[in-house]
Computed example of a mutant assay.
Amino acid sequence: MKSKTFSKPFNKKENNPHRHISPKKEFIASENEIENDSPDLIYGCYPVLAALENNHQLNRLYIISKLLYDPRFETFLPQVKANGTVIDVVDNNRLNQITNSANHQGVAATVAPYEYLELPALITQAKADSDNPVIIIADGINDPHNLGAIIRTAEALGMQGLIIPQRRAVGITSTVKKVAAGALEYFSVARVVNLQNAIAELKEAGFWIYGTIADSGNVLHKTKLEGAIGLVIGSEEKGISQSTAKSCDFLMSIPMKGKTPSLNASVATAICLYEVSRQQLLNNSK
């Protein structure tokens, strides 16, 4: 792959080049919290409705009586029952038990575990979907709220997919699904054993890898974001790892003017993805 002309290339001698935009004091889910967040449970109106609208097979639907006559759900219930789903009419106390007192909005369902896409399939799908596909690479995101928000923003802005590592990172759990608000019905996620190998595979497929760091990188809005893009977002506590930073073609930073030193991972991702979208729109209009 030929190198691009760039205003400020990654300098490996910079201090803490892999420090992420996110603050170190941000909430980080413990291993137990991640394990107890069931991947086969969805709850909340948007995630359940998205599953129903996309004919996702539900094993069991828990719903309060008031929602049985809600037009949003009423039309789906006969077909859901015909498909073999067990419908349990329950009260809020029972839903609180099922969802561990989460914001369930009166409905929850158990589904088959989330099916991750294999990385080669994700790359093929992304390139078929767009001439300039964007795949987010989450380097060790532990907070399911952050991961869900990243997925929701990425799908809303028309990005093509997400890569997450198998170890030391949250997977697609019920909290991620709830925060994503149904976006996972339309957005693909690959889970890989080795993130550096995945980045190498993206490069072989023609992607340029842009990493986000707190400072000392190229200024975001002065960075040329073009072609197929792999956008690396680091973990809440440590940011992108040193090995991942070395795998990036370019590192960039969001300029900060206030006294707050950093942004959390999902907010930083949203800002970066908007800049990608802005530049793509400008390039398409030329």
Score class of each variant (00 low, 15 high):
Met1Asn: 12
Lys2Pro: 13
Lys4Gly: 05
Phe6Cys: 14
Ser7Arg: 12
Ser7Met: 08
Pro9Gly: 10
Phe10His: 05
Lys12Arg: 13
Lys25Phe: 12
Lys25Ala: 08
Ala29Ser: 13
Ala29Gln: 04
Asn36Ile: 07
Asp37Tyr: 00
Asp37Glu: 03
Leu41Gly: 00
Ile42His: 02
Tyr43Glu: 05
Leu52Asn: 03
Glu53Trp: 02
His56Val: 13
Gln57Asp: 10
Asn59Gln: 15
Tyr62Gly: 07
Ile63Val: 10
Ile63Met: 02
Ile64Asn: 08
Ser65Tyr: 09
Lys66Gly: 02
Asp70Arg: 03
Pro71Arg: 09
Gln79Cys: 07
Gln79Met: 08
Ala82Asn: 15
Val86Lys: 15
Ile87Met: 12
Asp88Arg: 09
Val89Ala: 05
Val89Tyr: 07
Gln97Ile: 09
Gln97Lys: 15
Ile98Gly: 00
Ser101Trp: 11
Gln105Arg: 11
Ala108Tyr: 02
Ala109Trp: 07
Ala109Pro: 11
Ala112Gln: 11
Pro113Phe: 09
Tyr114Phe: 14
Glu115Pro: 01
Tyr116Val: 05
Asp131Trp: 10
Asn132Met: 10
Ile137Cys: 13
Ala138Gly: 08
Asp143Glu: 11
Gly148Met: 01
Gly148Ala: 01
Ala149Leu: 03
Ile151Pro: 00
Arg152Ser: 07
Ala154Gln: 03
Met159Asp: 12
Met159Trp: 08
Leu162Trp: 00
Ile164Tyr: 04
Arg168Met: 06
Val170Ala: 07
Gly171Ser: 12
Thr173Trp: 01
Ala181Phe: 02
Ala181Tyr: 01
Ala183Asn: 01
Leu184Lys: 01
Glu185Pro: 04
Ser188Ile: 06
Ala190Ser: 15
Gln196Leu: 12
Gln196Lys: 14
Asn197Asp: 14
Glu201Phe: 03
Glu201Ala: 15
Ala205Val: 11
Trp208Phe: 10
Tyr210Cys: 03
Tyr210Ala: 01
Gly217Val: 10
Val219His: 13
Leu225Glu: 01
Gly227Phe: 08
Gly234Leu: 00
Ser235His: 05
Lys238Asn: 11
Gln242Met: 09
Thr244Ala: 07
Phe250Glu: 10
Pro255Tyr: 05
Lys257Ile: 13
Gly258Cys: 10
Thr260His: 12
Ser262Glu: 06
Leu263Tyr: 06
Asn264Gly: 03
Asn264Leu: 02
Ala270Phe: 07
Cys272Val: 10
Val276Cys: 14
Asn283Glu: 15
